[in-house]
Design a protein around this nucleic acid. Sequence first.
DNA 1: TATGAATGAGTGTTCATTCAT
DNA 2: AATGAATGAACACTCATTCAT
Lengths: 235, 235, 235, 235
Amino acid sequence: MRAAHIRRQQKGRQMRNAHSIRIPVPADEPLSRVERRKARTNKRLLEVARQLFSEKGIYWAKVEDITELADQGKGTFYKYFESKEALICALLKEGLDELTSETEQAVRNVQPGPNALSAAIEARVDFFLKWPEYLLFFHQVRGMMQLQVAVGKELRAIYDAHLRWLAQLIKPAMGAGQAGSARDIATATAAYVSGVLTYHVLFEGHEATRRRRQYFIEMLDQSLQPLIKGGNRSR
Amino acid sequence: MRAAHIRRQQKGRQMRNAHSIRIPVPADEPLSRVERRKARTNKRLLEVARQLFSEKGIYWAKVEDITELADQGKGTFYKYFESKEALICALLKEGLDELTSETEQAVRNVQPGPNALSAAIEARVDFFLKWPEYLLFFHQVRGMMQLQVAVGKELRAIYDAHLRWLAQLIKPAMGAGQAGSARDIATATAAYVSGVLTYHVLFEGHEATRRRRQYFIEMLDQSLQPLIKGGNRSR
Amino acid sequence: MRAAHIRRQQKGRQMRNAHSIRIPVPADEPLSRVERRKARTNKRLLEVARQLFSEKGIYWAKVEDITELADQGKGTFYKYFESKEALICALLKEGLDELTSETEQAVRNVQPGPNALSAAIEARVDFFLKWPEYLLFFHQVRGMMQLQVAVGKELRAIYDAHLRWLAQLIKPAMGAGQAGSARDIATATAAYVSGVLTYHVLFEGHEATRRRRQYFIEMLDQSLQPLIKGGNRSR
Amino acid sequence: MRAAHIRRQQKGRQMRNAHSIRIPVPADEPLSRVERRKARTNKRLLEVARQLFSEKGIYWAKVEDITELADQGKGTFYKYFESKEALICALLKEGLDELTSETEQAVRNVQPGPNALSAAIEARVDFFLKWPEYLLFFHQVRGMMQLQVAVGKELRAIYDAHLRWLAQLIKPAMGAGQAGSARDIATATAAYVSGVLTYHVLFEGHEATRRRRQYFIEMLDQSLQPLIKGGNRSR
DNA sequence: TATGAATGAGTGTTCATTCAT
DNA sequence: AATGAATGAACACTCATTCAT
């Protein structure tokens, strides 16, 4: 029965933004206490979700686990996220945004060309060593993308946008005549970095992996640099 | 699967295996009709599970979906597998066995050395193009390995054995003085191949990926060969 | 998450019918013990639902209340009915079928004409006095029909079919030239009978109402007979 | 509404009514701006509730839907109504008051006797054609009356008062020796009118029903007049 | 032996109501 | 006073697993 099953669209769930008050105010007016609190709650939920998803996996981490650890009522969760799946989307976005911005910052300091790729690799490795929680999360999300699940499509779109961005980043570094497209290299970069780190964290643990940071960066560099050099299709 | 589904009163009850019949028989005696039937049922269940796991994912494929498609009673399932998790383990084993044997066969025909690595890569790519069902399944299973769930440990052990085997295979091909261990290269090989193919199947579909077989093999070769050559940068 | 929200169609939920066995058998072969048990469970659930729906109303009677009173596991319920709403549909069908068949039997014994209408009224009153549980249930279901709820349409169709049948039954009794159509009279019949009995059971209780059976039948007859007589549109 | 929602710690806390201000004021003093505002808010909430209850049904219309459409804070709602159930009571009262007053006005212009009944019927039909929102609402409320829920009793009392009033109105019109009491006729009147209109609006829509206004008035008249004439069949 | 009916703990989600601001 | 963020009990429904037949 329950208004049953008429999944309703996210309705007006945006934070009331500072401009909706009558008296004109500068756009950067500090948030009210209530708004700051809301932002904090939202952040806290994402944070806790990231942690629990990485400990138990997105399937086994229950909404209630999250709200409990975040010390929130279960209902509160649904004020911030339309569903558990929406939370997954939000967290994916947040993670990729962070990864993107850290990578951009790293690349900004080097000359375009092979060094840019190296910088991107390093930033990517560092991202996952800094946020190991995202390793399993991204991994599981990639698994969901292929499924009929409702969010599958959306997750794929979010991820795809990231790969397109990465391809743009890599393009200037590519030599002429290389076999694959920038997109292929971007894909390989994402796949190699996540793949390798996931395996090593899995079998050796996070600390041991972190200690070998330099090694992984070099290894990945050795594996990826050949791909942006042209003309060597033969074996 | 149900997270805390540890009722499992029947814990440790051994799978009734085909050899538990009273009358001792020579190991190589031809199987009786009953035993052949049992083997067939077992195979059928694994086959159907592989298909459904790849279509819906291990979580969303229900035991009932499997038994229904396999045209077996639900109770029958539990005669062959102690639990859904046990089925996942069995399927992982079967898949890795197949991958192992196909790789061994491919490697057997080439000289030890870099060509052996190339042959292994090619065999690995071909395996996943031939059995695309395993791509998502292995992917998801790798996700499960990291969990505290009991089955995580077991899956990890199975996978670990495979990586150890792969390391042994690769060892003779390695140059002196290369930075990583054979195990590291084996890990990278597994990670790169699955990672790249998973991404491409995800974003381009299976057929498009299959058509680019040659490209992927070369790309992976370019990425992995440098790792077994010694004398590279530092450390 | 839960295979989430992909409401699946009722799949193959029909009772295995006697004809699916290989050896040809007479269509009226007695049901097996298992099948008899299933039929009993189904019947019991409907019975209990009828009772609870009439005591608490369809909204306030919970699925668990029903299964508990029926002494069944909650899961069992969903083996027999796809959802609570499906149960409501099934119960509506069952009730209308019963009402239809009792009315038909009563009408069969009288001459076509006004007496047929009287017989139908009497049968209808008797139905609700015999099954007072249906009074509130039908009432609430009529309320649901107008809503956007998923089942609304289906319920309306079921009810509509009943009214069409009732109109056919009444048609031969109608004089020429009466203002309304047979459908209008059928509607009035249904409305008057349920309406009056509902109010009286509500304010006087079931027993008192039952004792006045004869009175209600005559009253309804007085109210409905004029409608099938033609030519008196004036006041 | 939630069935067993009897937390209600604030039980018996009176609605803070507008007259609870300290300074005594003459009862007929014009309302202050604040009080006028309060009255307006109250009216607005009832109005919106009437609309939403008729569109979605009392169960499916959420308190939040109401406050949102009324452009009020959710907390405000509870300043005006102790609970959703209290709102339903208030709306029932308002509707019956309106119905009563429209009927009284209509009856005032005709001679006592059968014409009074006709006038009452006409007024009643017109009421529901003018306020179709009340059709489903009253219907659902009648359903709630039969429940054990606390509010059931209260609703029943409100409705009962209305029927008593209607009986008084009808009494002078009744002939001697008619079978039923004035109350019975009042009940039949209420039941027939709501019943018939509800069915027709349900199956034909509001507009079609409204166009047949004259027909329904005559039909109901034909059905109800016999009941106030004495000397009929037996008993 | 094979079956599938029965189970019930466990999930995501809802929504009337409260209360701090 | 007015608000709306927070709450958590309640509910429909699921599905791995058991066990009587």
